[in-house]
Design a binder for these strands. Sequence first.
DNA 1: GCATTATGGATATTTTTTATCTTTAATTAA
DNA 2: TTAATTAAAGATAAAAAATATCCATAATGC
Lengths: 173, 173
Amino acid sequence: MTRADFSDMKIGKGVEWAAHSCALLALLPANAALALEALADFIGVPSPYLAKQMQLLSKAGIVKAKRGVAGGYKLARLPETISLWDITGAIDGTTPSFRCTEIRQKGSCGASSDEVLTACKIAASFKHAEDKFRQELNNVKLPELVAGIAQDVSDQRKSRIKTWIEQNAAFST
Amino acid sequence: MTRADFSDMKIGKGVEWAAHSCALLALLPANAALALEALADFIGVPSPYLAKQMQLLSKAGIVKAKRGVAGGYKLARLPETISLWDITGAIDGTTPSFRCTEIRQKGSCGASSDEVLTACKIAASFKHAEDKFRQELNNVKLPELVAGIAQDVSDQRKSRIKTWIEQNAAFST
DNA sequence: GCATTATGGATATTTTTTATCTTTAATTAA
DNA sequence: TTAATTAAAGATAAAAAATATCCATAATGC
């Protein structure tokens, strides 16, 4: 397996988990919350690691956590205000993908630091490309995501999901 | 330093090296080539590892390598036909950044595989965003890159670079 | 044939990602 | 107030990937 078989431009799998978690939380009635264990059971991933992603979502203000009996997670904002970029940024961070090491200032013909006024064209190009990437993800809001995920789901399974939520969510009285 | 301080969407530093290497090769007269050691000296990085990047560029048909005395690297095509995406793809590969693990088929309400007809909306969204990223990089061709990098360079340094090339390139007679 | 230069494979090192566990803090109900 | 429940935070461990180097081999020109 050669080096080129992999792309360095990759998204951690925590993002996938977090996105599916948010999609599920978007289905909950307003008075309901889902505990970590229930979430992990639904999306089928180990709960200790999912806990980390949920903590990041919580810190980013995307979900709201409540401790104690009948606690758990729910969305902190309206689904329309949560984009796939919000989720990606919360989990994987927002540092630029391209890290400029200022090659221009290195080597036998390297420029001095006061000569280098503008950002390197290579770094600037990646920044520009990344902006497009981000804009695109920012246009995908949670309702669209939920609809897209539900597209293939049969009515039968939809009702099974509804039942699962009723049985596993914690409802505040 | 928390997890969210880093982005998973990152570009390997080999891409930066390769891009600068190509930018330098674009300055060479048609009958000249640059040996690995000279290239590494110019951009100021260790030659054993740069060798790997150059091999990938060579396999991708972006540069042409010639062994033996007065051998070295030169561009394999016209600079106008080489984009920053070509270089990125050659070094870091072209596999999608988002890896869908089919969460839809996992967990307690998971769908069966024959129920899942279309790509998951999450994966599709990332694919779409990545297409934009790629298109943007594909629009940046080597001449634009060279011009951008040269922008800050003083006339004095430009002539120093010219001299360096004359002294370090291998010219075919 | 000989010197030179790239190639390919093997390997080592470091960093990052993935994953788990344990202790602590918060919340609710009895 | 106490007990049960649940998330938060930190430490740590294991696995994977990126980064870096070396060596033997193949090609090229003189």
